[in-house]
C-alpha cells in the first residue's frame, strides 16, 4: 500500500484561523481535515500516514526554515506520494503548497500533486514543475478537487500515461507532446477559420502565452517637490468601516480624507481585512498604512506633499479582474489630482 504524506495549513489542520497563522510546522499521524476525503479517495490503494500542518503566515514569513523543517518531516515517513492542499483561492496557502511540492519533488523524486484556483498566485510559482489540479475558488469544491488529485496522483505513481490538461483537470504546464492528428494541418486550419467566421466555438491548437507585464514607469526626478499618495490592499478604513468594505471578495474600494491627520490611531482607524490577524493593525493602523512617518517625511521635505486622500480595499480572494478595475479607477483619480508617485502597501 502506498504511503502518502499530506500538507495542509493551520485552518484545514484544525489548529485555528488567522490568529494561529503563525504556527510553525507540526506533524500529526494519519489524516486530518481534508485528509479524510483524501484517504477515502485513495481507498485501499494508499494510506495517509502523516499530515504536516503549517501556519500560512509562518510559512511565508520564514520560507527557508519552514521548508527545511517540512522536508525533514517528510523524510521521516519515506512516502511514495506527496499531496498538498488543495489551496483553492487562498494566496499564502497556495504559495506554501507550490513551494513545498517543488521541493519535495526535487529532493525525494516522488510524485507530488496539489490543487488550486487558477488565479491563486501559487499556480505561476509551480505549474511548470508540478501538476496543479484546477479547483473552484472555495472549499465547497473540496470533494471534486480531491477526487481529481487522487486520480492523477495514482496514474503518476503507477507510471501510467498522463492525459491532456482537459482530460485530467490540471492547469496546463506548457509542455508540448507530439501526436498523429487525423487530418493535416492545412485542413484543420481552414476548418477552424470557417468555424470562426460562422461564430461557432473552436479551440486553438497553440494558445498564446499571456505576458501581461507593464514596463516600469520612469523614476520621479525630485520627490521633494512631488505629490505622493498612499494606497493599500490591507483594508485600513476609518473606524466603523463607513463604506462596508467586505472582509473578503471586496466589491469596492474606499477613498478617505487624511486632512489634519498626523497619525492613524486605534481610535480613528481599523482594518476591514479578513485574511490576516487584525490585532496588530487595529492596535496601530500605521503598521499597514504608514501615515505617521509619511507626515514626518513631508515635514522634513523628503517628499513634497502627502496626497490628501488615501485609497483602500481588502485584497483577500479578490479576482484579478476586480483588482484591475479598482486600480484603473484609482489611477485615474490620482492622475487627475496631480499625484506623481504612489506607495502601495499589502499585507
Amino acid at each position: 500500500m502506498l504511503k502518502v504524506v499530506h500538507y495542509i495549513n493551520q485552518f484545514f489542520g484544525q489548529i485555528g484561523g488567522e490568529d494561529k497563522a503563525d504556527t510553525p510546522p507540526l506533524v500529526k499521524e494519519g489524516p486530518v481535515g481534508p485528509g479524510l476525503a483524501l484517504q477515502q479517495a485513495l481507498g485501499d490503494q494508499g494510506k495517509v500516514v502523516a499530515t504536516i500542518i503549517c501556519g500560512d503566515s509562518y510559512f511565508n514569513e520564514h520560507v527557508d526554515e519552514a521548508l527545511a523543517e517540512i522536508l525533514r518531516m517528510v523524510e521521516q515517513y519515506q512516502p511514495d506520494l506527496f499531496v498538498a492542499g488543495p489551496a483553492f483561492f487562498a494566496g499564502r496557502y497556495g504559495i506554501a503548497c507550490a513551494t513545498v511540492c517543488k521541493a519535495v519533488q526535487e529532493k525525494f523524486g516522488i510524485p507530488v500533486v496539489t490543487g488550486m484556483y487558477p488565479e491563486n498566485p501559487g499556480v505561476d510559482l509551480c505549474k511548470k514543475d508540478v501538476y496543479v489540479i484546477k479547483t473552484g475558488d472555495s472549499a465547497a469544491q473540496m470533494k471534486d478537487a480531491i477526487t481529481k488529485m487522487v486520480k492523477l496522483a495514482l496514474k503518476m505513481v503507477n507510471k501510467e500515461e498522463i492525459g491532456t490538461p482537459e482530460e485530467e483537470g490540471y492547469i496546463p504546464r506548457g509542455i508540448r507532446k507530439n501526436y498523429f492528428a487525423q487530418e493535416r494541418a492545412s485542413k484543420r486550419a481552414v476548418d477552424m477559420l470557417v468555424k470562426k467566421l460562422k461564430g461557432e466555438p473552436y479551440s486553438t491548437e497553440l494558445p498564446m502565452p499571456e505576458f501581461d507585464r507593464v514596463p516600469p514607469a520612469p523614476a520621479v526626478k525630485d520627490l521633494s517637490k512631488a505629490l505622493v499618495a498612499l494606497v493599500t490592499s490591507g483594508g485600513i478604513v476609518p473606524k466603523g468601516n463607513p463604506d462596508h468594505i467586505e472582509s473578503s471578495s471586496a466589491s469596492k474600494f474606499g477613498k478617505y480624507d487624511l486632512e489634519g491627520i498626523v497619525a492613524l490611531s486605534s481610535e480613528t482607524h481599523q482594518t476591514a481585512h479578513g485574511g490576516y490577524d487584525p490585532v496588530y493593525a487595529n492596535e496601530n493602523p500605521n503598521r499597514v498604512l504608514p501615515v505617521d512617518v509619511m507626515r514626518e517625511l513631508e515635514k522634513e521635505g523628503k517628499i513634497g506633499k502627502l496626497h490628501r486622500y488615501y485609497y483602500a480595499t481588502v485584497g483577500n480572494g479578490t479576482p484579478v479582474a476586480k483588482a484591475q478595475q479598482y486600480g484603473q479607477a484609482i489611477a485615474k483619480e490620482l492622475k487627475d489630482a496631480g499625484v506623481q508617485a504612489v506607495i502601495l502597501t499589502s499585507t
Binding site: 511565508n60 498566485p121 501581461d212 494606497v231 486600480g327 504612489v342 499589502s346
Partner: peptide, 28 residues
C-alpha cells in the same frame, strides 16, 4: 492594482510581505 497604477504612468512602489506574489502579479 500596482500594475494598473504603473500602466497609467504613475511610478508605484509595492511594499509587501510576500515578495513572490508581488513578482508574479507584476509589480516593478
Amino acid at each position: 492594482m500596482v500594475k494598473e497604477l504603473e500602466r497609467a504612468g504613475l511610478p508605484t512602489v509595492h511594499i509587501c510581505t510576500i515578495v513572490p506574489i508581488s513578482k508574479t502579479v507584476g509589480a516593478n
